[in-house]
Amino acid sequence: MTAKPKTVLVVDDSVFMRDIIKDIFGAGGFSVIGEAGNGVEAVERYKELKPDLVTMDLVMPDRSGIEATREILKADTSALVVMCSAHGQETMVMEAIEAGAADFIVKPPRAEEVLAVVRKVLGVA
């Protein structure tokens, strides 16, 4: 990649899941500049780091992913938040999309799908 790598904030209460997502981004030429383990932290880190994109877990302690997404979008209407959902959470994903989420990926995350979604969202396809 010749352009400056796009920056990502990874939000998930599972360290394991964060690692997997980070590895996918690393392999795809993105730069993960921060992590958060809950919704409150996610909002704080977003304001501080201003990443190009956030991946947001749906279900977390201390403020759900949907609420955190709302807060981030309130602070920055151009924020790009991609939800991380799991099988059976379709209704919640749709709620997040209503709240302004840019797209979603499904756990377990598959590199190919995650990168395809993120590139579309960032317009770097």
């Binding site: 959902s85 379709e90 994903v93 999309i97 797209d103 979603f104 499904v106």
Partner: peptide, 14 residues
């Protein structure tokens, strides 16, 4: 092959 195709459709609609 897309995951959660209905949600994807919803996203496009949105």
């Amino acid at each position: 092959g897309a995951s959660q195709p209905a949600v994807r459709g919803f996203l496009a609609y949105k």
